[in-house]
Design a protein around this nucleic acid. Structure first.
Ligand code: MN
Ligand code: MN
Ligand code: MN
Ligand code: MN
Lengths: 239, 239
DNA sequence: TTGAAAGTTTAGTGTAGTCTAATGTTGACG
DNA sequence: CGTCAACATTAGACTACACTAAACTTTCAA
């Protein structure tokens, strides 16, 4: 009965939802997601991925080119963005409304994203004022499935003298996140590059407007995604 | 993004958690929970229950007497009460903090209860002021696993003239719950029995203090669990 | 140009949980 | 006190999703 209605809104398993998210992240710049990369991100064995890939392409969520990798179909991309919206809204809700620290929200959201209803996500979004960014600065897709594609540069790749706004922190590791928070390195912060040592050495930055210096090794600098900001001659726009 | 798919710890599955809750409710008065009753409550076939019963008794969560039924062990009871605490706190959080109506919270909590962490439950409980009752008046077990056992009578069984406080509403059916709310029949309300028709006929009650009458058929009256309240001679204690 | 390393898929196994059909057990009542 | 209907269990099949071991494909360097 009403097979078409049911098939139009097929229920995805938590496993499938996590695979789609990972494939989205790995094939973001239009390329293919490789079996072994998916396996590493999900912490499963490569043959488990091959098995899931077969199921996902049979249901039309991905396109598989054997020995090459996979890409999301339009339907798969829609499902992935829906999960990413849920994940990021949950992260923000937990930090803003329940006092979670930005290092611990990821694990919690990773489970809740599969259990919440669309109505609950709506209500949380409304309670937060339909926010655009999650606690780590990542853009929250709209309910319609649109997502902002910002052009950001890694702090490790910017030359000395540039003024930047820190926009996204590219890790979910609680220890690294807590360290960044201690250093005042959270999305929205303004800074200038004051020095970089050769041979992949550390970058020295100055926080704006305080001027407080911070020294950031290459491993961490690669996680700090920034937007260039035009330098004003004297002083900085307040706030 | 990792570690959620495969977890080596002896965590209970969502299925197991739901079975334990149902067995708790069915064997509450010290009796046995019957296979077919468990099956009906979970909407699965009886052989599915037999299979699960085997697994649960092997893990020490229940005691099985073949052809008789099952009972929770101390360990099983602890796990069941932990789930009931989660379920009821979630229901209350959704109604109080996110504007849910008491008819829709059950379905949402039924899924979320398996996904939330102990920390999240703690934070929600604190945000609510460590509440004792859920939106339907059911007692919330403490984190230590204690639960209030109230002695309540069904509105269908009380004789005319009695004064009562409505304490619990014994259904999760959204339609019935919405109807009760429309009629002002929510936990905490005071009322007096003014009439009952014979042959399982309807009960007429008066709301206190307004005196507004309500006529409640036996099917619904059986769902309204009350505590007797001593009648004061003239007027009623305010609020 | 070839051969081995790196990466991917196939083959086979296991666990959890569901189902239907068949069989076994219990207890109420005629 | 025996029969049978209701209830419970066993038997066997199926799906989803993981694993290891083995086979296969691609790539890259000698
Ligand atoms: Mn997840
Ligand atoms: Mn995030
Ligand atoms: Mn549940
Ligand atoms: Mn409830």
């Amino acid at each position: 009965m009403h097979a078409t209605l049911r098939d139009a809104n097929p229920e995805l398993t938590p496993s499938v939802e996590d695979y789609l998210k990972v494939i989205y992240h790995l094939s973001n710049q239009g390329g293919f997601a490789a079996t072994s990369d998916i396996a590493a991100m999900l912490d499963v064995a490569p043959p488990s991925v091959s098995g899931m890939v077969k199921r996902l392409s049979e249901t039309g969520l991905i396109e598989h080119v054997p020995y090459r990798g996979v890409q999301l179909t339009a339907q798969g991309r829609r499902a992935a963005l829906r999960m990413i919206r849920r994940h990021r809204l949950l992260e923000l809700y937990l930090t803003q409304q329940l006092g979670y620290d930005w290092g611990s929200v990821h694990a919690e959201a990773e489970r809740l994203e599969h259990a919440v209803s669309d109505e609950l996500i709506d209500r949380m979004a409304r309670a937060l004022g339909d926010p655009q960014y999650d606690p780590h600065g990542d853009p929250i897709p709209t309910a319609a499935g649109e997502i902002e594609e910002a052009e950001l540069v890694s702090l490790a790749d910017v030359s000395v003298g540039t003024k930047l706004e820190l926009r996204q922190v590219g890790t979910q590791d609680p220890a690294r996140l807590r360290y960044f928070a201690e250093q005042g390195l959270t999305p929205g912060v303004l800074l200038t590059i004051t020095d970089r040592q050769p041979f992949n050495g550390p970058t020295t930055i100055g926080l704006v407007p305080s001027g407080d210096p911070r020294v950031v090794g290459r491993e961490l600098a690669l996680l700090l995604w920034c937007r260039e900001v035009p330098i004003t001659d004297h002083g900085y726009a307040s706030r």
